[in-house]
């Protein structure tokens, strides 16, 4: 399993991560980021891409 943590103090809800893994990261109707905290190991590359594109570097993948 891959564990995802988003530092919500850093996150500015830009949603850039959502376009890399839209089943893991999503902006809700209020424009706030919601995300899945654990995904299957096969998704590691996608969630790492999401962490890469985050302009606030708010996403940690373990």
């Amino acid at each position: 399993m891959v564990t995802i943590t988003v530092d919500m103090d850093k996150c500015q809800h830009y949603g850039q991560c959502c376009f890399e893994a839209d089943d893991v990261f999503a902006l809700n109707d209020d424009g706030q980021l919601e995300y899945v905290k654990e995904v299957d190991g096969s998704r590691r590359a996608d969630v790492e891409s999401a962490a890469d594109v985050c302009p606030m570097q708010a996403i940690t993948v373990e």
Binding site: C18, L27, D29, G31
Partner: peptide
């Protein structure tokens, strides 16, 4: 503008 979440189908 303030519609990021709704852009996915357009993208």
């Amino acid at each position: 503008v303030d519609r990021t979440a709704e852009l996915a189908p357009y993208r």
